[in-house]
Nucleic acid binder design. Structure first.
Lengths: 115, 115
DNA sequence: CGGGATCCCAGGAGATACTG
DNA sequence: CAGTATCTCCTGGGATCCCG
């Protein structure tokens, strides 16, 4: 038990660096929930995302070991993205966030989700 | 029962807009956990934040009704920030995130929290 | 199909100085 | 003590075109 515990603020900061990007939450959620795991499907279901951003964000998620990238050597090429164990552990928390927003909307239907 | 349910992706996106800022998580956590509610105390305990960013972020949190700002008309001036009900509901989730990072560090002590 | 390369810009964030 | 006001810089992210 060598390691001294990191400070809470530090952890919160770190967590947001990992999942705070513009699309990271949505991508993780999308891979998990809809079972859409292929690049093209993700692109279609995440409205507004450009191929560059999708690729770039997936690469970051892969480096951070939240997402696993499986390439199948076929023609036409096929690539599938799945959550790692670590990534899967984030799902309950994204789910919590989602419920939080749904509550907000119920209590005040005037909130603009796209503002 | 008029409102149709917003899409999940939409909610996740919205949630991250509200809490995804560079310091929002840390500020919420700090107000909650350490009981540090005054501007100067927050500034001291959130390392690296500038007065501009602290003020600006607190204002956004106030507008989004996650934080309540109480001004006391005294000399010297005193202002206290507290979590609203809505803001308080985010604490479990930030806590969850914090634990997620602590687990990461335990499993791989080489991760650089400040990278 | 699943990307990569390049160019470009708004606005997020820092540094510094000042104020009621 | 609790902020404001500028000024500036950097980079996250968009648009567009191209590739194996």
């Amino acid at each position: 038990m060598a390691a001294d515990k990191p400070t809470p603020g530090c952890c919160v900061d770190f967590a947001f660096q990992r999942i705070g990007g513009k699309y990271k939450g949505r991508i993780l959620w999308c891979i998990h929930e809809s079972g859409l795991q292929r690049y093209g499907q993700l692109k279609k279901s995440i409205s507004g995302i450009t191929p560059k951003m999708l690729t770039q964000t997936l690469r970051e998620l892969e480096q951070d070991k939240l997402v696993h990238r499986q390439v199948y050597l076929e023609v036409p090429p096929r690539v599938e993205y799945t959550l790692t164990d670590s990534g899967r552990k984030l799902i309950p928390f994204i789910d919590y966030l989602k419920q939080w927003v749904e509550e907000l909307v119920e209590q005040d239907p005037t909130v603009d989700l796209h503002g």
